[in-house]
């Protein structure tokens, strides 16, 4: 017997967000390489190597990983547990009983706000047991936070 993946996908717009993040990373690298080649005295072979690296970053970060991550990133909140799956090369599934949840945080980066996306982080008493759901639709994230806050407030004990 193995664990099945959680039921819900994150927002489809997450792919676009991750791809845009990849593009920004690539652009930063291109600018750095151009500046280094023009103002620094970077030899031709090194510039070529830089171009190859940037191409790899572009293909990986913009064309591949956003789609791979979207296929893998999933989440599920039931009456008594939170279950997430994330990663790309290394895939991690995490389960936390709701009775052990300590805090629920939402985070919206500047770019994520443009796409109407949020990240929800559920922490437990273990520093190595936090659950993170990236690329959630803002409304969905708010629902999750509201549900979890109600349930965790109702359960007693210090969740250790």
């Amino acid at each position: 017997m193995d664990l099945r993946p959680p039921t819900h996908f994150v927002s489809p717009r997450a792919r676009l967000l991750w791809a845009v993040e990849g593009v920004i990373g690539t652009v930063v690298l291109i600018v750095a390489l151009v500046l280094w080649t023009v103002f620094g005295d970077l030899g031709m072979p090194w510039t070529l190597l830089g171009v190859v690296v940037i191409l790899l970053v572009f293909v990986g970060g913009v064309l591949l990983t956003p789609f791979a991550r979207y296929r893998i990133h999933r989440w599920e909140v039931t009456d008594d547990a939170v279950y997430t799956q994330r990663g790309w090369l290394t895939i991690e599934q995490r389960i936390a009983p709701i009775s052990r949840v300590q805090t629920v945080d939402t985070e919206r980066g500047a770019l994520a706000r443009l796409f109407g996306l949020s990240t929800v982080t559920v922490t437990t008493a273990s520093a190595k047991g936090e659950l993170k759901i990236e690329g959630l639709d803002r409304a969905v994230a708010e629902d999750i936070v509201r549900d979890l806050t109600v349930v965790t407030a109702a359960s007693d004990g210090d969740a250790t």
Partner: peptide, 27 residues
């Protein structure tokens, strides 16, 4: 009873070998 969560981690090579590292998360 000290478990506050479970983490199942599979690297690329672990997936190929059909293995997983299962951790007990605790305070």
């Amino acid at each position: 009873r000290s478990a506050v969560g479970v983490v199942v981690r599979r690297s690329f090579f672990q997936r190929r070998a059909r293995l997983a590292t299962v951790s007990l998360a605790t305070a």
